[in-house]
Every structure is written in structure tokens, then in C-alpha cells.
Design a protein around this nucleic acid. Structure first.
Length: 680
DNA sequence: CACGCTTATATTTTT
DNA sequence: TATAAGCGTG
């Protein structure tokens, strides 16, 4: 039975809201996750809504799991497992495989991530001859970026170029040509990129033939982190909840925490919700249960300088006399030192490492710290910025699986065929022509079968290698190696010499492939494994290492983006310098700068009891010119003088470095030397 | 035409 | 710090 445990009046109103659209504007730390979980529990427990008729859209799969397990604790039975939950993309993937037929989709499409999409762009870029010209043409990543923004924001290509890519304006014609071909090529190859998943879901939700049955699938739709959805996603929701039905749609969000503008997310979705869904109930959650008053005061001070209106006043009942600390450091090395010291200090106070996090703007900002942590034997797990799937050797392996899964996948063939010794782009293209990878009609023989059985015209240099590739592929088509993990295992024999030839440190790369195999062990089918991997890539180094390899306690390192929705007892925000936050890459216009401000706000509001902000004054740069080996930095512009008073300020002059022996090495560090004798 | 070498370049955040 | 483009060699 549902018990409204510990809900405040506003939360209770939200949880027990009946029919019709509901917007919950929930500030940081106001119990948003709990409220949404309780609402799911209430719908199931009190309203007797069948779980499989509830759609819960979250920002990550991790968030969906977290919310459903909380709901489960509230309902006390295991019904919540049947709730349809996940990211927009993951749900689209599932729906389209089941119901995409009327749109002309085959259920066995493969999913391209952004890098894969860029590779297709690159193929076209070469085909159209844009790679060999006097004038430089946008690179594949840029093309993919332009494409995605155009589609997600639903803007005209010309406008997107003007506002976000002005330096590409001259090439608008070529870009248009490539985009047209890109779309056609994807359809021929039976592949979908991230944007297609949303586009086709929208089509499904609006097409006369499918609209009604699709809307009828769900009694309630709930969306978390609504401030980070884009125009396309809002359209999908509107399609799912047609006007003549009870528009049971609950969205939760906070305009002050919108940090995905670069992905075309727009706060307009929140602001316009009541217009789009007339009669919507709006509830504000303003009591922060997470942070102490001083931390909240500092966070509020930062966001209050935003020229945009965030009409909430967060307050907290958690009094404390501990101010957040603004620590000025001489340089990055001293910052590492200070972070380590503070982390250990908090641990002495009883805050375990995994209740502490170090947050930063860009994944590589923690590089130096990671070295220092390793040196001091402080275990950690890093979230965000993991480029596992983008590493060449992982892509090599996955392309083989993809060719097996979808023999019309051009990019994957192009990659696979260049793996053997003596095979380059030109021969790969010729072989692709020979086996008929380009689809011209619907009942074309499988290029994979052709590759395995037909005699091929390949220069002598590549013959042996191609033969090995053939047997490797054939080895994976046997009946007894249907499981994806088993296929990877078989491929290892083929890949080992390939990697040895192509990469340095090939042993480490082979270990990654073993990790990939372990990852694959959870999946019954290859298709499932491949699509889940692109839609929910490993989020942390920990996901790859697997729990058994970790110590019992570990510190969290995370990009601010990946820290969204999470909280820790002690939070360390590093690199609070202009150029880092805001990132130099994101100071082009006011909109971008404001997003960076909200990013800092998100970082600060992750903290429950202790907050440290670090600002290194000096950065050593790689010799750009030959002269200046270092640059001085300014404290982030988001903490100007009037905000600094919310912090306790610590500067390097206050600490006499000379009395601190921990930084010394060799004979001078007597205590360190002695400590090393006891440990281990 | 592949491959190994040198040089230029751009460098964030994520589904 | 990578990776991508450019160039000479076999």
C-alpha cells in the first residue's frame, strides 16, 4: 500500500495529481527524484495503473533504474520492473523495432552513434570530391554536428550555419548535397543515427495511421530533466498525448539547471509547457533538502547573477556554520595536492570516499589529479568523457560484429576490409563493389554471403590477409557461436596480429577487447548487444573494470555534465578559472556563457555538507610559441567580488608551504619515508 | 596503391 | 595530445 512518507505539501500535491498535464518546477535538491518515484508508486499502488502502461523517460538509463528501484521500495512489490523506462533514444529504439513497419522501417536496423554518423559523412565527403580541393571543407565531425543541431532544433540549415557555424556559410551548397545523400544512404543501409530514432518516433506519434494506437499504449507519461529536452522531444510528447484524450503527462525540470544547449536542448520546453498543454497544473518545489544553508547561499549567489529569470527561491533548513571554501592555488600541482588533502581530511571526519566527488568541466581536466591519486593509492572511478567506444581498436572489433549483423552497413565494411595487411582504402572500395554492399533493390543477395563464397579480385599483397578475414567472419557464422561474447572470443585470434601491426601498446588494446567481451556476456543476441552499447555506452571506467577489481571505497571523479542529478556529502570543484569554467570553447555568445554559468551552479548544488572550489592561478602550457611557458588565470567570472563573500577564502600565502612536508620527496620527507615502511 | 613518415590542426559537454 | 592530411618510397 502506498504511504506518503515524508512528503512536504507541494510534493504530495505533485505525487497525487490526478489526470491532465503537470509541470513540476523542481529546484536543485528539492526531492525531485523522490517525488517522481513516489508518483510512479502512487499511480501503480493507488490508481491501479498497470505498470506496463506507464512510460518513464529519463536522461540516462542509470537515472531510470534509480527511480524505479525507489518506486519499488515504496510499492513493496516488484511491479515497477514492468514500467517502460529509459532515455528517449532507448525507448524509440524499442518502439521502432516493434512498430516501425508502417514507416517503412525494418526491425533489424543498426544504430549509429555520432562518430559513426561522422564516418558516413566522411565517405560522402570523399565521394563528392570535397576532401581534395583548394578550399577547405568542414571536417566530418563538424558536418555531423551541423546535421544534428539542424535536426534536433528543427531549424533551417541556413539559420543554423549563420548562428552556430558562420565559417561554414560559404560551403552551404556542398553541405546540403552531403546531407541529402547522407539521408538516402542511411535508408539504403538500414541504419539509424540518434536523430533518426527521435525523428521516426515523432513520425510514428503523429502519422494518422499510427497516432492513435501509439497514444493508447500508455496511460501516463513521465519525463525527468525536462529542461534538457529539445524541440523534437517536445513534439514527440505532444504527439503521444493528443488533445482529445486525458493528457496524462508529468514533466519535471529546472530551468536553472539546463546544461545541454549544445545538443539543441531548450528551456523553452519548460516555459511553453502550459501553453502547449492548456490547463496544465504547475507546482514549484523550493525547499532544498540536500545542501546546508551556506552552500545554498553561495549557489544562489552564483545563479542570481544570471540575466535570465529563474523564478524560484531555494531555501534549506539545514543550518551549518561551515562556509564553502574558495581555495586559490599556485598552480595545478598545488590544486591536486589540496584536493587530496581535503579528501583525506573529510575521510578522517567519517565521510567515505564514495560520498565525495571531484567535479570538472572537461574530461581531461582531471588528468593530473588522476596521476596524483594513483601515486597516493587513493582509488577512484571516473564518470564522463570515456572514449572507450571511440578508440580505434574497439571500433575495429565492433565493425566486424556490425557487418555480421547488417551486411549492408557500408562504413563498417570499409573499416573491416582495411584491417588485413596489404588492404587500403582503394582495394576496400573495389571489394565492396564486388560483393554488392551498396543496396540498389530490396531483394539483393547478402554481401556477407558473397564475401565468404565468391572469388575476389584482390592484389596479391592483400590475398592472405583477406583469406584470414574470411575465416574469421565464417567462424562467427557457425550455429554454436550465436552469443556475441563467443563471437568476440573467436575474433581475438584474428585481431591480435592486426593490432600488433597497427597499434603501439597492442597488448593493452587486446585487454580492452577482453573487456568488451565481458560487457557482451550480458547479452543474448548480437543485435541487442550492439544497439544497447550505442544507446547506453559504459559511463565510467568502473563499468569497464567491473566491481570485483575495485577497492571497497573509491572517490568519484566526474564531468559536471555526468554529475547531473547526483549528490555527495563533500564536493570538490576544480579548475574554477576563466577559460575552464566557462570553457574557452563556449564563450562565443551570451547564450553559451549563460549555460556555463548554470553548469557551475549545477556543480555547486551537488554538495550536501562540504563544498570546495579550487582556482589554480597559473597554468603551464605546452610551448605554443617558444616564449611563454605559463599563463596566469583569472578566477571564473561567475564568482565575482560580491559572490566571494559567500565563501571562506583560502589562498596559498596563508599556508606556509615549507611546513608541509607531504610534498617533499626523498630523504627530506622523513615522515613519508617512515609511513611507507609501515604500509604494505 | 599501401604504408610509413612528417607536419598541421583543433582541442567541451553526451544520447 | 591525439588524429588527420600530405608526401615519398617500394
Amino acid at each position: 500500500m502506498f504511504e506518503p512518507a515524508d512528503l512536504n505539501p507541494e510534493q504530495l500535491t505533485a505525487v497525487t495529481h490526478g489526470e491532465g498535464p503537470l509541470l513540476i518546477v523542481a529546484g536543485a535538491g528539492t526531492g525531485k527524484t523522490m517525488t517522481l518515484a513516489a508518483r510512479v508508486a502512487w499511480l501503480i499502488g493507488e490508481r491501479r495503473v498497470r505498470p506496463e502502461r506507464i512510460l518513464l523517460l529519463t536522461f540516462s538509463r542509470r537515472a531510470a533504474r534509480e527511480m524505479l528501484s525507489r518506486a519499488e521500495r515504496l510499492t513493496g512489490d516488484n511491479q515497477t520492473g514492468r514500467v517502460i523506462g529509459g532515455t528517449f533514444h532507448a525507448v524509440a529504439n524499442r518502439l521502432l523495432r516493434l512498430h516501425g513497419r508502417p514507416l517503412g522501417l525494418r526491425p533489424d536496423f543498426t544504430v549509429l552513434d555520432q562518430a559513426d554518423g561522422a564516418d558516413v559523412m566522411n565517405l560522402l565527403r570523399e565521394e563528392f570530391g570535397y576532401s581534395a580541393r583548394e578550399r577547405r571543407f568542414p571536417r566530418k565531425e563538424t558536418l555531423a554536428g551541423i546535421y544534428s543541431r539542424t535536426v534536433n532544433a528543427g531549424e533551417k540549415l541556413g539559420d543554423v550555419l549563420k548562428t552556430h557555424y558562420p565559417w561554414c556559410l560559404d560551403e552551404a551548397e556542398g553541405i546540403r548535397e552531403i546531407f541529402t545523400a547522407y539521408t538516402a544512404r542511411k535508408r539504403d543501409q538500414n541504419v539509424m543515427d540518434y536523430d533518426d530514432l527521435l525523428l521516426f518516433w515523432k513520425a510514428l506519434a503523429w502519422a494518422p495511421a499510427t497516432r492513435e494506437p501509439l497514444a493508447a499504449m500508455f496511460d501516463h507519461v513521465l519525463v525527468d530533466e525536462y529542461q534538457d529536452t529539445n524541440a523534437l522531444q517536445a513534439d514527440i510528447l505532444e504527439g503521444l498525448r493528443p488533445e482529445d484524450t486525458p493528457r496524462n503527462l508529468t514533466v519535471v525540470g529546472d530551468d536553472a539547471q539546463s546544461i545541454y544547449g549544445f545538443r539543441a536542448a531548450t528551456v523553452r520546453n519548460i516555459l511553453e509547457f502550459p501553453t502547449r498543454f492548456p490547463g496544465a497544473t504547475v507546482i514549484k518545489l523550493e525547499q532544498n533538502y540536500r545542501s546546508t544553508t551556506p552552500i545554498l547561499t553561495a549557489s544562489n549567489a552564483v545563479i542570481s547573477l544570471s540575466p535570465q529569470r529563474h523564478e524560484k527561491t531555494l531555501w534549506s533548513a539545514r543550518e551549518s556554520d561551515r562556509l564553502p571554501v574558495l581555495r586559490t592555488c599556485l598552480d595545478e600541482a598545488e590544486q591536486c595536492e589540496a584536493v587530496c588533502q581535503n579528501v583525506l581530511l573529510h575521510r578522517e571526519e567519517g565521510v567515505p570516499l564514495h560520498r565525495q566527488a571531484v567535479l570538472f568541466r572537461a574530461a581531461h581536466h582531471s588528468d593530473l589529479l588522476e596521476v596524483e591519486l594513483a601515486r597516493r593509492n587513493i582509488p577512484f572511478v571516473k564518470y564522463g568523457g570515456l572514449k572507450f567506444l571511440e578508440a580505434g581498436h574497439v571500433k575495429d572489433t565492433l565493425s566486424i560484429l556490425r557487418v555480421l549483423e547488417n551486411p549492408f552497413d557500408e562504413v563498417s565494411w570499409f573499416r573491416v576490409l582495411q584491417l588485413p595487411d596489404g588492404m587500403g582504402p582503394a582495394t576496400a572500395r573495389r571489394v565492396m563493389d564486388q560483393i554488392g554492399v551498396r543496396r540498389v533493390n530490396d531483394d539483393q543477395p547478402s554481401p556477407l554471403v558473397n564475401f565468404l563464397d565468391q572469388p575476389l579480385e584482390v592484389p596479391r599483397a592483400g590475398l592472405d590477409g583477406v583469406q584470414e578475414l574470411r575465416s574469421a567472419l565464417r567462424g562467427c557464422t557457425d550455429e554454436d557461436v550465436l552469443l556475441p561474447a563467443a563471437q568476440i572470443e573467436r575474433l581475438r585470434a584474428f585481431l591480435t596480429p592486426v593490432f600488433a601491426r597497427r597499434y603501439d601498446a597492442s597488448a593493452a588494446r587486446m585487454r580492452d577487447i577482453e573487456q568488451l567481451e565481458i560487457l557482451a556476456q550480458g547479452y543474448e543476441t548480437r543485435g541487442r548487444f550492439l544497439s544497447e552499447l550505442t544507446l547506453d555506452p559504459p559511463a565510467s571506467t568502473g563499468d569497464l573494470a567491473g566491481p570485483p577489481l575495485l577497492d571497497e571505497d573509491w572517490l568519484i571523479l566526474s564531468t559536471i555534465h555526468s554529475a547531473k542529478g547526483l549528490e555527495w556529502d563533500a564536493v570538490h570543484v576544480i579548475h574554477a578559472a576563466d577559460g575552464m569554467i566557462p570553457s574557452d570553447m563556449a564563450t562565443g555568445n551570451d547564450e553559451e556563457i549563460e549555460e556555463e554559468r548554470r553548469l557551475l551552479y549545477v556543480a555547486l548544488t551537488r554538495a550536501r555538507d562540504a563544498l570546495h572550489v579550487y582556482h589554480p592561478q597559473r597554468y603551464y602550457r605546452r610551448p605554443k610559441g617558444l616564449e611563454d611557458p605559463h599563463t596566469f588565470s583569472q578566477l571564473t567570472r561567475f564568482i565575482p567580488d560580491q559572490v566571494q563573500s559567500a565563501f571562506q577564502q583560502v589562498s596559498p600565502q596563508v599556508v606556509d608551504v615549507r611546513t608541509d612536508v607531504s610534498g617533499l620527496s626523498g630523504a627530506a620527507n622523513v615522515d613519508g619515508y617512515l609511513a611507507a615502511l609501515w604500509s604494505d
